[in-house]
């Protein structure tokens, strides 16, 4: 599988979750695991460009596919991706544990819909939980991200 533009060997354990493979075998710990069963969205990655929950996939399912994790958005100290920049500017995070998942969901959302309405934003990221912000600043972050992406 290709993760952030780098090819990686196939996982040796066929039962390995994609989330665990990314975190423990490849060592990219920006993909977080909050619930292990597809509710919190902390483990969201892009799978061939579309957001998926990596805790609900087996690593072997990613064979032959492109996976982008949070680390792949602005690699090696490159300037922040517009979505990352927007979360920073608008205080769209506190503890930040949910942030990589939100960022990846928003990247997917804006790709599909570059100019979402407030309702479309809410629906688009309703699969991600945040326990700190009450979501208000995340709404502001998505609007700002859409602006920065134009």
């Amino acid at each position: 599988m290709n993760v952030n533009g780098v090819d990686h060997p196939a996982p040796t354990d066929p039962r390995r979750l994609l989330s665990d493979h990314i975190r423990h075998d490849i060592g990219l710990t920006g993909t977080h695991v909050g619930c292990e069963h597809g509710v919190c969205g902390c483990c969201t990655v892009l799978f061939d460009g579309a957001p998926v929950r990596s805790c609900l996939m087996l690593a072997i399912q990613a064979e032959g596919h492109q996976v982008t994790t949070i680390e792949g958005l602005a690699p090696d100290g490159a300037p922040l991706h517009p979505v990352q920049q927007a979360f920073h500017e608008t205080h769209g995070l506190q503890c930040g544990f949910c942030t990589p998942g939100f960022v990846m969901s928003v990247v997917g959302l804006l790709k599909q819909n570059p100019d979402p309405t407030p309702e479309e934003i809410d629906e688009g990221i309703s699969g991600n939980l945040c326990r700190c912000t009450g979501y208000a600043s995340i709404r502001r972050a998505v609007l700002r991200a859409a602006e920065l992406s134009r």
């Binding site: 710990t29 920006g30 922040l80 979360f87 205080h91 930040g96 990589p100």
Partner: peptide
């Protein structure tokens, strides 16, 4: 003030205890 730790947090580079 923009929180300084946010840069590492939005990059997925902030090491949480579970990492």
């Amino acid at each position: 003030v923009r929180r300084p730790d946010a840069v590492q947090k939005v990059r997925g580079d902030f090491p949480y205890s579970s990492d």
